[in-house]
Amino acid sequence: MEAKKPQLRKERIDRGIKVRADDIFALNSWREVIYLVGPRAIPVVGLLVLGPFLSAYSREILISTASYALLAISWDYMMMAGLASLGQSLLFGIGAYFTGILNHYFHLPWFITIPIATLTGSAFVSLLLTPVLRLRGVYFSMITLVLPLMFMRLIEATRILGGTEGLTGLDSFPNEWVSYYLIMFALLLALFGFRRLGDSDYGLIIRAIKDDDRSVMNAGLNVYWYKAQALFLGGCVGCFVGAFSTHYDMFCGMPGFALDYSIMPIACTLLGGMGSFAGALIGAFILVPLAEVLRAFGALRIVFYGGFLAFSIVALPEGLFHYLSRKYHQIERWVEVR
C-alpha cells in the first residue's frame, strides 16, 4: 500500500473532573475545587461585592439589569415546562398592582407587601391561566400576549386603581442598600435554586413535559398539575420583580403591563442560551447595559441593538452559556484517523 497523508480529526473529551463530578462531588485537590467553584463564584461575588464600588447611576442600571435577569429566569423556567409565554409583563404588572394596592389602600410596609404580592399575584395568574394550560406552543403564547394588554385597557377604561396615572407616592425602601441586596439575593436564589431544581427528579418531569407530554401522561402523571406548578413557580419570580419595582420606583401603573417586560427577557434568554438559567443571567447582563450605553446614539440605538441581536442569534444559536460551558468542560485535540 502506498503511504497516505495522515487524516486528522478533532476529538472532544470531557475533562476527567467533569466525568467524576457532574453531580457527586469527589474532589482530590484545591485545583479541582477551584475548577468547580470558580464559575459559580463569579455571579455570587460579582453581584454582592460590586455594589458599593459603583456610582449611584451604575448601581441603578445594575438593579434594572437584575430585574430583567429575574424575568428572564422566570421565562426560562416556564419554557422548560413547554409554556412558551409571551407575557412576562402580565406577571410584572400583576405583582406591581398587588403591591400597589396593599401599600396604597392598606398602608402595609414593604416587607409584608412584597411576599404577599409575590405569592397571591402568582396564584392569581396561575388561576387565570389554568384553563389555557392545555394549549400548546403559539396558542398559549397568544393568550399570554393578549392578557396584559387587556388588563392595561381595562384599567384605562374603568379608571380603577388610579387609572392612567397609576398609584403614586408609595413607600420606598428604607435605604438603597436594602433594595440592592434584596434583588441581588433574590437573583442568586432564583439562579441557583432553579438550576438545582432543574437537575432534580422534579425538574426531570418538568423537562419531560416539554419533550413529549403524552409520554409523561403515560407514566401516570397529571401533566396539567405539573404545568400549573411550573407556572406558579415561574410566576412567583415575575411577580416578585413587579413588587420590588413598585417600591423601588414608588409607583405602579399601566407601564407595568408594557411589552418591554415580555420581549426583553426572551431576547436575554435566547442570547445567553435556553434551559440553563445562567444563560438568562448572562444575556440580561449583556443586553440591558448595552441598551443603556447605546442611549447615546439616539434613534439609531434600536438599529445597533437589533443588529447585535440578529448577529448573535445567527452566529451562536445555542447561546453564549452553552458555548462557554462546553469549552470549559471539554478538551479538544487533533487525533489521527486510522
Binding site: 487524516q7 480529526r9 478533532k10 451562536l316 444559536p317 445555542e318 452553552h322 458555548y323 484517523v337
Partner: peptide
C-alpha cells in the same frame, strides 16, 4: 455545527 451539537467528520 451551527447548533454546537455533535461534530460529524467524514472521510
Amino acid at each position: 455545527m451551527r447548533r454546537g451539537g455533535e461534530r460529524i467528520s467524514m472521510y
